[in-house]
Amino acid sequence: MIASLPRPGGNMTGFAPIVPSLAGKWAELIKEIAPGIIRASMLFNPQSATFIESYVEPFKTATSALGIEAVISPVENMDAVEAQVTAEARKSNSALVVIPDAFTELQRAKIVALTVRHGIPAINWSRSFESGGLISYGPFLIEEYRRGAIYADRILEGEKPSELPVQTPVKFELVINTKAAQTPGLKVPPALLARADAVIE
């Protein structure tokens, strides 16, 4: 759709929330909050997460360094999600990493409910999962909307979208739900709580 991030060309520009290095950060954070895990499954819908390959290698690199088995788990509907979560629940010391895509966002409440019911530690990409979710880390979306408004104003004032770089996030937020940590029997490290942008109790 664009020629490059610095010079998109054509008649399109904007903000891309996809940051491949986040996959490694998710692995580190879920290991920090649930140090006993030995297996982490990356959950995504291949129909909407067409960018998944950009996350896979950073995820595998980070999990390997942490002594965690990386599992790539494509799911196309909620029946598949439930089957995957149930299967992980039968194994000991498993965790989930929920990748940002349109499907996981739409089904976030159901996904959170499944992980809580089965007591599986899960890290999500957005605080939109905070209702019952254990931990999330990702772009601070409110800031992205503000930056988008600035771009809209510049375009309305006559600047060409082709000359406005596609931008990636500049601010990220870590949200931890200490109540959700009680279900899988986790104790959130004080150092991790101190780094959190928001703590839900």
Rank of each mutant, 00 (worst) to 15 (best):
A3R: 14
S4H: 11
P6W: 15
P6Q: 11
R7E: 15
G9K: 10
G9E: 07
M12W: 05
T13E: 07
G14Y: 06
A16G: 10
I18D: 08
P20W: 09
L22S: 10
L22R: 11
G24Y: 09
G24K: 05
W26Y: 11
W26P: 05
W26N: 05
A27T: 01
E28P: 01
E28V: 00
I33F: 00
A34E: 03
A34M: 06
G36S: 09
I37G: 00
I38E: 15
R39K: 15
A40Q: 09
S41Q: 09
L43D: 01
L43G: 01
S48E: 06
T50V: 11
F51K: 04
E53P: 04
V56L: 13
V56I: 15
F59Y: 14
A62L: 07
T63M: 05
L66W: 06
G67Y: 06
G67F: 08
V71R: 02
S73N: 14
V75L: 05
D79W: 10
A80R: 10
V81L: 03
V81Q: 04
A83P: 12
Q84D: 13
A89P: 02
S92I: 08
N93P: 01
S94P: 06
S94H: 04
A95L: 06
A95G: 07
V97M: 12
I99R: 01
D101Y: 02
A102E: 15
E105L: 13
E105M: 14
Q107K: 15
Q107M: 10
A109P: 00
I111E: 04
I111A: 09
L114T: 06
L114D: 09
T115E: 11
R117P: 04
H118M: 03
H118D: 10
G119K: 11
I120E: 02
P121M: 06
I123H: 00
N124T: 15
N124S: 13
S126D: 13
S126H: 13
R127C: 02
F129H: 03
G132K: 03
G133Y: 06
G133R: 07
L134P: 02
L134T: 00
S136E: 06
S136A: 15
F140G: 01
Y145S: 05
R147M: 08
G148H: 11
I150R: 07
I150A: 13
I150G: 00
Y151F: 13
Y151H: 03
Y151G: 07
I155N: 09
L164M: 13
Q167G: 10
P169M: 00
F172V: 08
L174D: 03
V175M: 04
V175D: 01
I176E: 02
I176P: 00
N177E: 08
T178R: 02
T178H: 05
T178L: 07
Q182I: 13
Q182L: 14
G185C: 04
K187Y: 05
P190N: 12
L193R: 02
L193C: 06
A194L: 11
R195N: 06
A196L: 01
A196W: 00
D197S: 01
A198G: 08
A198Y: 07
I200E: 00
E201P: 13
